[in-house]
Amino acid sequence: MEQTIQDIVKWLRKTVEEAHVKGLVVGISGGIDSAVVAYLIKRAFPEQSLGVIMPIKSNPTDMEHAKMVIEDCGISGMTIDLTSSHQTMYGTIREAIQKKNEYNEMAERLADANLRARLRMSTLYTVATNYNYLVVGTDNLSEWYTGYFTKYGDGGVDLLPIVDFTKKEIYQMAEALNIPRPILEKQPSADLWEGQTDEEEMGTTYDKIDAFIKGEEVSESDRILIEKMHQRTEHKRQMAKQFKKNS
């Protein structure tokens, strides 16, 4: 795993050099994936890496863990509280739809969660422009395969250093990077709403997703669920469809 970490660090440095930028920025949520990426970019660019904490009515424990990541790995950090910005933006959008009497309450939670992810990514790109950095994504293979990310939110980044690694491999990488135990031992959550956890929302576990991806045997119900998630979210893994004249 140490060799893998060194390979990723080399790749990060090469990517930055080829892009003619100065460094890298990542959003830090307090979860394991963003922690791993923060430690990686700090290794690659000790003086030109930045971790941004972006609370939106966030779980206080997650924010404590995010600060722990910044302090433990020594990356430069900043906090940008987006709570009021999110409330204003979502409230304005909801009011406009309600005026047309077309507001879909069933879609409210998902729309709200996706707006959080996209607002955070817009923030990262604004920060990145200031520093002439690239925005680094935190999606792993298990999330990428199932589409468990927000299109043009956490999925809208410049580079994905851990997208070829399953969740189990991310934990192994985290161990090798000496990430603090509280982050290693917590339940994975995208902090999209109060009490939300990844596995509960997906309806299966990362262990089962990892096993399926590796071609190992899983239950028929899990196989069907994972395949459906993959098929339903194929559009997220593709560039925008383009009309071709004379086609």
Rank of each mutant, 00 (worst) to 15 (best):
A35F: 03
I70V: 15
N114G: 11
N130Q: 12
T88P: 00
Y145H: 13
E95L: 12
M78G: 12
E64A: 04
E95T: 08
A38Y: 03
S76W: 01
G137W: 12
M78C: 12
I41C: 12
Y90R: 01
Q98D: 09
R109K: 10
H86K: 01
R109G: 04
C73E: 05
Y125N: 02
G31Y: 11
P55G: 07
Y103K: 06
P60K: 00
M106Y: 08
N114S: 11
H65G: 00
A35V: 01
G137V: 09
A96P: 06
M121C: 03
Y145V: 14
T138K: 00
G27A: 13
W144A: 15
S34D: 11
Y145P: 07
P46L: 03
K42R: 02
A38G: 15
I97P: 08
N101K: 11
G27P: 12
N114F: 13
L110G: 08
D139F: 03
S85F: 14
Y131H: 13
I41H: 08
H65S: 00
G91N: 14
Y125C: 05
R118E: 07
H20I: 01
P46G: 04
V127N: 13
I97H: 04
R43P: 08
L82E: 14
S142N: 14
V21I: 10
L115Q: 07
Q48Y: 12
V37Q: 02
R109W: 02
A113M: 12
M89I: 06
